[in-house]
Structures are given as C-alpha cells and as structure tokens.
Design a protein around this nucleic acid. Structure first.
Lengths: 240, 240
DNA sequence: CAAATATGATAGTAATACTATTATTCTTGC
DNA sequence: GCAAGAATAATAGTATTACTATCATATTTG
C-alpha cells in the first residue's frame, strides 16, 4: 500500500513507467544487478537486454538512455530513503534520536525490510545502496545538469536533504547551515564508505586493526561525531 | 626551479611524459580547456587533436586513453595543491593558522600565482580547479579502481590528505579521525562548491540573498565551522 | 473478438575508442 | 652538415556503442 506511494516517480525520469509492466520491472531490477556487477560505464542496454532475454530496442522504450536509467535508480533510492526516514522518525520526539536513526539509515542499518514472501519482485536495496555509493555522483556530474535539474530529476535528493535539514533545525533551530549540513553528511557517508573499501588510507577505517568496533561502526561513530560536533558548537562565527 | 619538482609525475600516469615536448604540453594545457568547455564525457581525443591541430594517434602516444588523461590532470592538481600547502604553511607555527590557510587554498583563494611573464605555457589552475570539482570523482569511481590504485595513480591525493591529516594532529594530537577528516573536508569543499552553482537548494549558499558575505565566503565559513567544531569537540565517543 | 498496444526480430547509422602502417619532419650526436 | 633515430602527420581500418527505424507478432483491453 504505502509502497505504491513510495514508488510513484516523476514522469520525466522515464519514457514508459517501468513499474507498469513485467518487462519494465525486470529492466529495473536486473539493471540494478548488472550495474553492481560490472559498473555503470561498462553496462550497456545490449548487455542488459541479453541478461533479461529481450531486445535493446525494448529497453529504449522505457528509458531514453542509460544515464536516465541511472538517474531513475538513484531517484528511486532517495525516495525510498526518505520514506524510511519518515517511517522511522515519525514516532520519535527527540530530534537527536531522529538524527541518530538517519545516520544508521544512511549506512543501511536496521531499515524496514519488506516481507520475505514478496522478495522475488522487490528491488534489491542493498545493491542499490552500493550503486548510490559508487555511481550516484555520475547522475549529476554532467554537462547537462542544468537541463536535467529543470526537469526535476534531482527532486527526490533535494526532498530528502530538505527533510533532514528540517530535523536538524528541530534539534538546533538557529543552525545557519541546515541544508549544507544535510547534503554534506549524506555525501560524506557515501564516499567515506567507498574510500574505506577501495582507498582505505584516505580514512581511519582501514580493513584491519583499530579498536574493538568493526569498520562500519567506526564510520558510523565518525559521522555521529561530525554531525553532532557541528550542531553543538556554541559559537558560530559566520564572518570571522 | 621548484616547479620542476612540482610536476615530476608518476610515470604510470602517461605513456610518454607530456611535459617533455611542446606537443605534450599543448595536449595537457588545451585538454584542460577543452574539458572545462564541453565536459569530460563529451571530450574525445579526436576533438582535442583538432583543437591543437594534431592527430588522434599522436595523443594516444602520450596517454593510453582519456580516462588516464583525467587521472593525470587531477593528480597534477593534487601535487600542485600539496606544494601550495607546504609553501604557505611552512613559515607558520600555529596549526590553526595552517588549517585556515588550507581551507582557503581548497577554494583557490590567495594561492601563489606564477610570474606573469611565463603565463603562456602555464597550466590554467583555475580551470583545473573547476575540473577537479566537476570531474575528479570520475577518476576513482571506476570498476578498475583497484588496479589503478595498485599503479599508484591516486598517490598524490593520498599524499595531500596525509599531509593535512598531519597538520590536524599538530592541532589536536589525540584526534582519532585525522585522515577521514582530511579527505572529507576536501570532498565537502568541492561538491558544496558544485551544489552552490548547480543545485543551490542543497546548500545554504544560494545565488541570491543571505548575509553580507558572498557565497564563496559563506562556503568558507561553513568549512571552517565544520572543521574546527569537529576538532574542538571535547568528548569523542568512539563507541557510544 | 476487434482494435489498440507492447514486444520481438532484424537492420542500419553515426560516433567513439581505439590500432596499424607508412610517409614525412624534426632532433641530435658526431 | 649530415646520417641515424625519434617524433609526428596522414591515412586507413576495426570493434563497439548508442542509438533509430521498420515491420511482424504477440498480448492486452474495451
């Protein structure tokens, strides 16, 4: 029920709604798996078509090109995440608790799993999370960002950041950088997770050693530290 | 003099050293301008060759492919920036002052300009800065990052982060996240600058309004706030 | 069950990302 | 000043990519 609300996507994100047909759903679900397998650059509609036993031209009836498919996947993830944020913070009163939950969600901890019975047709959120970490910035780091933005393709990300910014302001109403704080904590979560895996010397969460916590938990501690240290700073010198 | 030290690049970054010939230097310098003009995805060696009146095959003798050219440009920038950091902080004793200088350098404020006479053959650092903001993550967000990393292609970035992490530890010797703090402040500086320009609603530095400071200065204030609030936090709950 | 719609099957095009080959020019050591 | 070697120009060619077009065949739906 709420799921259909969750996946109602901006119509500019596709040519034909992939959720409206079995083929469309396979394009999206297998597209996620193919991109996680071989990476976005190496993914082609031909390979995806072969994987799901259809033809290139059929995929082009759903998505203009592979960049739009990426934008769709990433937008879906942001909408899903915002839904999780709303769902998991609605019953909380303490804004600090809300922010704690959000940090965990950003690392895909303790999110609301769909019922196991309908798992076959579900989106693989864990795979999508990996795509967001590795590929999401390619969705907006393009020469045509202005046009894409005009088509509202990034609205789900903006909505999520706006919602988190609102909770930041609940926690600290006079905080002057709520939106930048929201977008930067999300981005930091993602590329620190990436660096942790591929360029660990850029982090303090190397694969081995360090503390009794696992790397994921140490990353979470770092994000908590970053977020709350900034929100709890007494003096905010806007000039200097 | 120090310049030759600065540009001594890892030999894995190219096939033939582009600084060793006039054509190589034009490839790099005009490559910077072409990428800033049309974006990395749209740049091709054919277009670059036409721009500098040479042939595609000649460019391939210097760089294996266009991704390697991007990696080269980004690596050059990190080496240049590390040099600037060393140069501008060497005479300072206060680590806080050093970090202040570094923040400004990250936004390309007050950097040491080369003498105007030799400007014709200089790298356009301002254009390169724009490339780093818009394209640098494409240098490492690839399916072949592990191999590229084995070839040390990202060493200049690691070196810069390591140096900044060292200064962070001068300022606060017990800080447990020095490397992550260094990499995250750099990344934050760059995509906040990007968002400010293209997706301003993700930031608090919209094109209009707000305070008496310009957007660049407000971004600097934000970065200063982020960095020092985290470094000055009394209690660092590594667990929780 | 007819009409509309979706997909399959096949073909084709322009551009991209290279590689190869040979001719020409440009250096550089002697 | 010239021969040997290196760099570049000029031209060609290939496999792949990123599409678009067309028409036949299913499949859905009113």
């Amino acid at each position: 029920m709420e799921y259909t609300v969750l996946v109602r996507m901006n119509e500019k994100l596709f040519l034909r709604d992939p959720e409206s047909s079995a083929l469309g759903r396979r394009i999206v679900r297998q597209g996620i798996l193919l991109v996680t397998d071989i990476g976005f650059e190496e993914m082609t509609f031909r390979k995806l078509a072969e994987r799901i036993s259809t033809k290139e031209a059929s995929i082009y009836r759903y998505f203009e090109n592979k960049h739009r498919l990426l934008v769709y996947l990433v937008a879906w993830y942001w909408q899903w995440l915002e839904y999780q944020v709303v769902f998991q913070t609605n019953n909380l009163t303490d804004p600090r608790e809300k922010l704690e939950r959000i940090l965990k969600l950003m690392l895909l901890k303790d999110f609301a799993q769909p019922n196991a019975s309908s798992a076959a047709d579900e989106m693989d959120v864990a795979a999508l999370h990996r795509i967001v970490i590795r590929e999401a910035s390619k969705a907006y780091l393009t020469h045509h960002i202005t046009e894409d933005n005009r088509h509202q393709l990034f609205k789900p990300y903006k909505d999520l950041c706006g919602r988190i910014a609102g909770i930041i302001l609940e926690y600290r109403p006079d905080y002057p950088y709520a939106r930048s704080r929201a977008s930067s904590i999300i981005e930091t979560a993602h590329y620190q997770a990436f660096f942790m895996q591929y360029l660990p010397s850029l982090t303090d969460f190397g694969t081995g050693s360090g503390g009794q916590l696992g790397n994921e938990d140490r990353l979470l501690s770092f994000l908590r530290h970053l977020l709350f240290s900034s929100l709890e700073t007494a003096t905010l010198s806007t000039s200097r």
